[in-house]
């Protein structure tokens, strides 16, 4: 464990807590893409298939439970909770995510570390996580006034993977033989997808104006 990875995990956790806070307290998911939330739930399910048969540490185990539990409860809230579901803008959240799920699955079948079910599922979860934010970014472009919590949520989500990139650089230089091309490239693509959001988010924060993404 290193400081970049711990900061990355804490940033990831806080992004989920910000979203849960928004949905649970103001009972609204306005501006949040259910598609992205469902993709994240799928990412965690396919990534943590080995939660019971591969024990790394208490920390890993607990964080996996938290990520699984929170992502599934967010999907539940947005689908089942009356008030929250009413605030969901399904006419705007129209990204057809089979266009990302299938290619990620095919790619995972072709490029992976080992052609076993669990390894392919794990690789699929990496590729899927890299592009899972797309429905949310598309929705943000369509949402006129992005509220602060939504902006913070997306910012923290992008920042976590950027911190993971630093973690991989650190591990590359401190752990001989630490090479993870699949993880590194997926993580880099994921972070690059946030580039323009980061630009407009920091601009709105500096000029103290409402965050708005150009359509």
């Amino acid at each position: 464990m290193n400081v970049f990875r711990l900061a990355g995990d804490m940033t990831h956790l806080s992004s989920i807590l910000v979203l849960l806070l928004k949905i649970h307290t103001i009972k609204s998911c306005a501006g949040i893409s259910l598609k992205t939330q469902e993709l994240y739930a799928l990412v965690f399910i396919t990534r943590y298939l080995d939660i019971f048969d591969r024990f790394t540490s208490i920390y890993n185990f607990l964080m996996k439970l938290i990520f699984l539990g929170s992502s599934l409860s967010i999907v539940w809230y947005m689908r089942r909770h009356k008030a929250v579901h009413r605030s969901y803008d399904k006419d705007q959240d129209t990204f057809r995510y089979q266009f990302i799920v299938l290619p990620c699955l095919l790619l995972a079948l072709v490029i992976n570390h080992k052609l076993t079910f669990k390894e392919v599922m794990w690789t699929f979860s990496l590729y899927l996580e890299a592009v899972a934010i797309l429905p949310q970014l598309v929705l943000l472009q369509r949402t006129r006034n992005i509220d602060n919590l939504t902006g913070q949520y997306v910012f923290l989500l992008g920042a976590y993977r950027a911190l993971y990139l630093l973690n991989w650089v650190y591990r590359y230089f401190t752990e001989p033989g630490f090479v993870r091309w699949i993880t590194w490239i997926a993580g880099l693509v994921q972070t690059l997808l946030y580039a323009d959001f980061f630009y407009y988010y920091i601009l709105s924060w500096k000029n103290n104006v409402k965050l708005e993404l150009p359509a």
């Binding site: 790394t56 964080m63 570390h113 080992k114 090479v179």
Partner: peptide, 10 residues
């Protein structure tokens, strides 16, 4: 030997 992948990260 292909890079070992012990999935030690979240």
């Amino acid at each position: 030997q292909p890079e070992l992948n012990e999935h030690d990260e979240l």
